[in-house]
Design a protein around this nucleic acid. Sequence first.
DNA 1: TTCAATACTTCGTGATACGATGTATATCAG
DNA 2: CTGATATACATCGTATCACGAAGTATTGAA
Lengths: 105, 105
Amino acid sequence: MDIQLKRGLLDVCVLTAIQNEESYGYKILKDIKPYLEMSESTLYTILKRLEGANMLTVRSAEHEGRLRKYYRITPKGTKRIEEFKKEWREVVSIYRFITKEDTEQ
Amino acid sequence: MDIQLKRGLLDVCVLTAIQNEESYGYKILKDIKPYLEMSESTLYTILKRLEGANMLTVRSAEHEGRLRKYYRITPKGTKRIEEFKKEWREVVSIYRFITKEDTEQ
DNA sequence: TTCAATACTTCGTGATACGATGTATATCAG
DNA sequence: CTGATATACATCGTATCACGAAGTATTGAA
Protein backbone atom coordinates (compact mmCIF):
# COMPACT_ATOMS: atom_id res chain seq x y z
CA MET A 1 0.00 0.00 0.00
CA ASP A 2 1.16 3.49 -0.88
CA ILE A 3 3.08 5.10 2.00
CA GLN A 4 1.37 8.44 1.60
CA LEU A 5 -2.05 6.88 1.87
CA LYS A 6 -1.02 5.12 5.08
CA ARG A 7 0.22 8.22 6.83
CA GLY A 8 -3.07 9.47 8.16
CA LEU A 9 -4.08 6.02 9.35
CA LEU A 10 -1.02 4.80 11.27
CA ASP A 11 -1.38 6.88 14.43
CA VAL A 12 -5.08 6.17 14.74
CA CYS A 13 -4.55 2.45 14.15
CA VAL A 14 -2.05 2.30 17.00
CA LEU A 15 -4.43 4.18 19.29
CA THR A 16 -7.22 1.83 18.27
CA ALA A 17 -5.08 -1.18 19.18
CA ILE A 18 -4.77 0.03 22.79
CA GLN A 19 -8.23 1.50 22.99
CA ASN A 20 -9.97 -1.24 24.94
CA GLU A 21 -7.05 -2.61 26.97
CA GLU A 22 -3.42 -1.73 27.45
CA SER A 23 -1.01 -3.48 25.12
CA TYR A 24 2.68 -3.63 24.25
CA GLY A 25 4.68 -2.98 21.09
CA TYR A 26 5.04 -6.48 19.79
CA LYS A 27 1.38 -7.30 20.30
CA ILE A 28 0.21 -4.04 18.75
CA LEU A 29 2.27 -4.88 15.68
CA LYS A 30 0.65 -8.31 15.38
CA ASP A 31 -2.83 -6.93 15.87
CA ILE A 32 -2.43 -4.28 13.20
CA LYS A 33 -0.59 -6.35 10.60
CA PRO A 34 -3.63 -8.11 9.12
CA TYR A 35 -4.98 -4.69 8.18
CA LEU A 36 -1.88 -2.62 7.58
CA GLU A 37 1.78 -3.46 7.08
CA MET A 38 3.95 -1.60 9.56
CA SER A 39 7.63 -2.02 10.41
CA GLU A 40 8.95 -2.20 13.96
CA SER A 41 10.90 1.03 13.67
CA THR A 42 7.76 2.78 12.47
CA LEU A 43 5.69 1.51 15.37
CA TYR A 44 8.16 2.50 18.07
CA THR A 45 8.57 5.90 16.45
CA ILE A 46 4.81 6.35 16.56
CA LEU A 47 4.54 5.17 20.17
CA LYS A 48 7.14 7.73 21.20
CA ARG A 49 5.33 10.45 19.30
CA LEU A 50 1.96 9.59 20.79
CA GLU A 51 3.50 9.54 24.26
CA GLY A 52 5.00 12.97 23.63
CA ALA A 53 1.58 14.19 22.57
CA ASN A 54 0.02 12.78 25.75
CA MET A 55 -2.23 10.47 23.81
CA LEU A 56 -0.99 7.46 25.73
CA THR A 57 0.90 6.58 28.91
CA VAL A 58 3.58 3.94 29.41
CA ARG A 59 4.52 1.61 32.22
CA SER A 60 7.39 -0.87 32.14
CA ALA A 61 6.97 -4.37 33.50
CA GLU A 62 8.90 -7.60 33.32
CA HIS A 63 7.23 -10.55 31.66
CA GLU A 64 9.01 -13.91 31.60
CA GLY A 65 12.44 -12.37 31.86
CA ARG A 66 11.78 -9.90 29.06
CA LEU A 67 11.03 -6.23 29.34
CA ARG A 68 7.67 -5.11 28.22
CA LYS A 69 6.32 -1.59 27.92
CA TYR A 70 2.61 -1.43 28.32
CA TYR A 71 0.77 1.40 26.63
CA ARG A 72 -2.55 2.75 27.79
CA ILE A 73 -4.68 5.28 25.94
CA THR A 74 -5.48 8.67 27.51
CA PRO A 75 -8.61 10.82 27.03
CA LYS A 76 -6.60 12.88 24.56
CA GLY A 77 -5.88 9.71 22.59
CA THR A 78 -9.55 8.81 22.55
CA LYS A 79 -10.35 12.30 21.36
CA ARG A 80 -7.86 11.84 18.53
CA ILE A 81 -9.77 8.78 17.33
CA GLU A 82 -13.05 10.70 17.48
CA GLU A 83 -11.55 13.51 15.43
CA PHE A 84 -10.38 11.02 12.86
CA LYS A 85 -13.91 9.72 12.49
CA LYS A 86 -15.18 13.22 11.89
CA GLU A 87 -12.50 13.87 9.28
CA TRP A 88 -13.40 10.63 7.60
CA ARG A 89 -16.48 12.30 6.12
CA GLU A 90 -14.22 14.76 4.33
CA VAL A 91 -12.09 11.90 3.07
CA VAL A 92 -15.15 10.20 1.66
CA SER A 93 -16.23 13.39 -0.09
CA ILE A 94 -12.76 13.60 -1.68
CA TYR A 95 -13.05 9.98 -2.73
CA ARG A 96 -16.37 10.81 -4.40
CA PHE A 97 -14.72 13.71 -6.22
CA ILE A 98 -12.10 11.33 -7.56
CA THR A 99 -14.57 8.69 -8.71
CA LYS A 100 -17.27 11.10 -9.88
CA GLU A 101 -14.99 12.78 -12.42
CA ASP A 102 -14.43 9.44 -14.06
CA THR A 103 -16.89 9.60 -16.95
CA GLU A 104 -15.58 6.33 -18.36
CA GLN A 105 -16.82 4.72 -15.13
CA MET B 1 -8.04 18.58 7.82
CA ASP B 2 -5.04 16.67 9.13
CA ILE B 3 -2.03 16.95 6.82
CA GLN B 4 -1.12 13.30 7.14
CA LEU B 5 -4.56 12.23 6.08
CA LYS B 6 -4.35 14.46 3.01
CA ARG B 7 -1.06 13.08 1.77
CA GLY B 8 -2.36 10.09 -0.09
CA LEU B 9 -5.15 12.10 -1.70
CA LEU B 10 -3.37 15.16 -3.07
CA ASP B 11 -1.63 13.61 -6.09
CA VAL B 12 -4.72 11.73 -7.16
CA CYS B 13 -6.91 14.82 -6.75
CA VAL B 14 -4.65 16.79 -9.05
CA LEU B 15 -4.68 13.99 -11.62
CA THR B 16 -8.47 13.83 -11.34
CA ALA B 17 -8.72 17.55 -12.04
CA ILE B 18 -6.98 17.11 -15.40
CA GLN B 19 -8.50 13.75 -16.17
CA ASN B 20 -11.16 14.80 -18.61
CA GLU B 21 -9.57 17.89 -20.12
CA GLU B 22 -6.26 19.68 -19.81
CA SER B 23 -6.15 22.43 -17.21
CA TYR B 24 -3.72 24.90 -15.63
CA GLY B 25 -2.48 25.51 -12.10
CA TYR B 26 -4.79 28.26 -11.05
CA LYS B 27 -7.88 26.47 -12.31
CA ILE B 28 -6.86 23.14 -10.78
CA LEU B 29 -6.53 24.90 -7.45
CA LYS B 30 -10.03 26.37 -7.72
CA ASP B 31 -11.53 23.06 -8.79
CA ILE B 32 -10.01 21.15 -5.90
CA LYS B 33 -10.56 23.73 -3.15
CA PRO B 34 -14.21 22.91 -2.44
CA TYR B 35 -13.11 19.39 -1.53
CA LEU B 36 -9.61 19.86 -0.17
CA GLU B 37 -7.62 22.86 0.97
CA MET B 38 -4.33 23.09 -0.90
CA SER B 39 -1.78 25.89 -1.02
CA GLU B 40 -0.27 27.20 -4.24
CA SER B 41 3.24 26.04 -3.35
CA THR B 42 1.92 22.57 -2.67
CA LEU B 43 0.13 22.39 -5.99
CA TYR B 44 3.10 23.48 -8.07
CA THR B 45 5.33 21.08 -6.17
CA ILE B 46 2.92 18.27 -6.97
CA LEU B 47 2.62 19.25 -10.63
CA LYS B 48 6.42 19.14 -10.95
CA ARG B 49 6.53 15.77 -9.25
CA LEU B 50 3.81 14.29 -11.43
CA GLU B 51 5.55 15.62 -14.52
CA GLY B 52 8.79 13.99 -13.38
CA ALA B 53 6.91 10.74 -12.92
CA ASN B 54 5.47 11.02 -16.45
CA MET B 55 1.93 11.10 -15.15
CA LEU B 56 1.21 14.33 -16.99
CA THR B 57 2.63 16.45 -19.78
CA VAL B 58 2.93 20.23 -19.94
CA ARG B 59 2.62 22.80 -22.69
CA SER B 60 3.03 26.55 -22.23
CA ALA B 61 0.67 28.98 -23.90
CA GLU B 62 -0.09 32.68 -23.61
CA HIS B 63 -3.57 33.64 -22.53
CA GLU B 64 -4.51 37.33 -22.38
CA GLY B 65 -0.93 38.46 -21.84
CA ARG B 66 -0.32 35.96 -19.07
CA LEU B 67 1.62 32.75 -19.21
CA ARG B 68 -0.29 29.60 -18.67
CA LYS B 69 0.99 26.07 -18.36
CA TYR B 70 -1.52 23.52 -19.46
CA TYR B 71 -1.31 20.07 -17.96
CA ARG B 72 -2.59 16.95 -19.64
CA ILE B 73 -2.84 13.50 -18.07
CA THR B 74 -0.88 10.56 -19.53
CA PRO B 75 -1.83 6.85 -19.52
CA LYS B 76 0.51 6.45 -16.56
CA GLY B 77 -1.44 9.13 -14.74
CA THR B 78 -4.71 7.40 -15.48
CA LYS B 79 -3.22 4.17 -14.20
CA ARG B 80 -2.26 5.94 -10.99
CA ILE B 81 -5.90 6.86 -10.41
CA GLU B 82 -6.98 3.28 -11.05
CA GLU B 83 -4.44 2.00 -8.55
CA PHE B 84 -5.73 4.46 -6.00
CA LYS B 85 -9.22 3.07 -6.41
CA LYS B 86 -7.94 -0.44 -5.80
CA GLU B 87 -6.07 0.67 -2.71
CA TRP B 88 -9.21 2.34 -1.48
CA ARG B 89 -10.62 -1.06 -0.48
CA GLU B 90 -7.70 -1.52 1.88
CA VAL B 91 -8.28 1.93 3.31
CA VAL B 92 -11.91 1.06 3.97
CA SER B 93 -10.92 -2.16 5.72
CA ILE B 94 -8.58 -0.16 7.96
CA TYR B 95 -11.39 2.29 8.66
CA ARG B 96 -13.56 -0.65 9.71
CA PHE B 97 -10.80 -1.87 12.04
CA ILE B 98 -10.74 1.54 13.67
CA THR B 99 -14.51 1.79 14.12
CA LYS B 100 -15.10 -1.88 14.93
CA GLU B 101 -12.81 -1.80 17.96
CA ASP B 102 -14.91 0.94 19.43
CA THR B 103 -17.12 -0.99 21.83
CA GLU B 104 -18.56 2.23 23.25
CA GLN B 105 -19.97 2.84 19.77
C1' DT C 1 24.06 -24.86 19.07
C1' DT C 2 21.71 -22.70 15.85
C1' DC C 3 17.59 -20.61 14.59
C1' DA C 4 13.18 -18.35 15.16
C1' DA C 5 10.35 -15.76 18.00
C1' DT C 6 9.89 -12.25 21.39
C1' DA C 7 10.84 -7.33 22.67
C1' DC C 8 12.66 -2.81 22.42
C1' DT C 9 16.15 0.97 20.56
C1' DT C 10 18.71 4.21 17.67
C1' DC C 11 20.46 6.32 13.45
C1' DG C 12 20.26 8.14 8.98
C1' DT C 13 17.77 9.17 4.87
C1' DG C 14 14.49 10.39 1.47
C1' DA C 15 9.96 12.14 0.62
C1' DT C 16 7.03 15.85 1.02
C1' DA C 17 3.37 19.71 2.41
C1' DC C 18 3.58 24.28 3.26
C1' DG C 19 4.61 29.07 4.67
C1' DA C 20 7.07 32.90 3.04
C1' DT C 21 8.48 35.47 -0.52
C1' DG C 22 8.98 37.04 -5.17
C1' DT C 23 7.66 38.23 -10.15
C1' DA C 24 4.29 40.01 -13.42
C1' DT C 25 -0.08 41.39 -15.75
C1' DA C 26 -5.15 42.59 -15.98
C1' DT C 27 -9.11 44.70 -14.15
C1' DC C 28 -11.93 47.61 -11.56
C1' DA C 29 -13.30 50.85 -7.94
C1' DG C 30 -12.30 55.34 -5.89
C1' DC D 1 -4.19 57.95 -11.58
C1' DT D 2 -3.83 54.89 -7.78
C1' DG D 3 -4.41 51.05 -5.07
C1' DA D 4 -6.47 46.74 -4.39
C1' DT D 5 -7.76 42.32 -6.03
C1' DA D 6 -7.53 38.48 -9.13
C1' DT D 7 -4.84 35.88 -12.15
C1' DA D 8 -0.60 32.95 -12.81
C1' DC D 9 3.65 30.73 -11.77
C1' DA D 10 8.30 29.95 -9.15
C1' DT D 11 11.67 29.00 -5.42
C1' DC D 12 13.63 28.30 -0.91
C1' DG D 13 13.87 26.52 3.59
C1' DT D 14 11.91 23.84 7.20
C1' DA D 15 9.58 20.47 9.94
C1' DT D 16 7.46 16.10 9.91
C1' DC D 17 7.63 11.45 9.24
C1' DA D 18 7.89 6.23 7.60
C1' DC D 19 11.24 3.07 7.10
C1' DG D 20 15.42 0.22 6.38
C1' DA D 21 19.45 -1.14 8.76
C1' DA D 22 21.64 -2.45 12.59
C1' DG D 23 21.98 -3.47 17.35
C1' DT D 24 20.89 -5.61 22.22
C1' DA D 25 18.99 -9.39 24.81
C1' DT D 26 16.15 -13.49 26.32
C1' DT D 27 13.46 -17.87 25.60
C1' DG D 28 12.46 -22.21 23.59
C1' DA D 29 12.42 -25.57 20.02
C1' DA D 30 14.93 -28.34 16.37
